[in-house]
């Protein structure tokens, strides 16, 4: 068992713990926006660490370096696409009129939209 295997195993464990935390957040959070927050942030971090961990683990176990290259490509792709999809989903949710949690205090975006309408 080499150092790379150890690092890979640790990263996979780290990522799966983050997966668990984010699914917990999906159940625990009160409204769509808070849920999206947990579902994107921690899942992206968890995925990155799991995917790269698998690559390092495979190299440590004596598989070819191609594993690590592929996992890095997948991780970069995920890192770039996940925030964009989350942004589009949240924007779509807001535009279709899904309300914020009743405990929220500030809605600057609504003020901005209303201010824009007043100008026109």
């Amino acid at each position: 068992m080499s150092v790379l295997t150890g690092i890979g195993e640790f990263l996979v464990l780290f990522g799966t713990v983050f997966y668990f935390i984010s699914t917990l957040g999906l159940i625990r959070m009160p409204d769509v926006y808070n849920r999206m927050q947990t579902a994107t942030k921690s899942v992206t971090l968890g995925s990155l660490s799991t995917i790269i961990g698998v690559g390092l683990w495979a190299v440590g176990e004596g598989f070819s370096i191609a594993w690590l290259t592929k996992t890095i490509v997948i991780a970069v792709f995920l890192l770039l696409t996940n925030p964009i999809s989350a942004h589009a989903l949240i924007r779509g949710a807001y535009k279709s009129g899904i309300p914020l949690w009743e405990g929220s205090v500030v809605d600057k975006y609504k003020e901005h939209l209303e201010g824009k309408e007043g100008e026109e």
Binding site: L80, T81, I84, A88
Partner: peptide, 15 residues
Amino acid sequence: KMEGSVVLTTGSKLL
């Protein structure tokens, strides 16, 4: 009807 946000259009162009 509605143009996508800047993040979405730039991201799609890049991807």
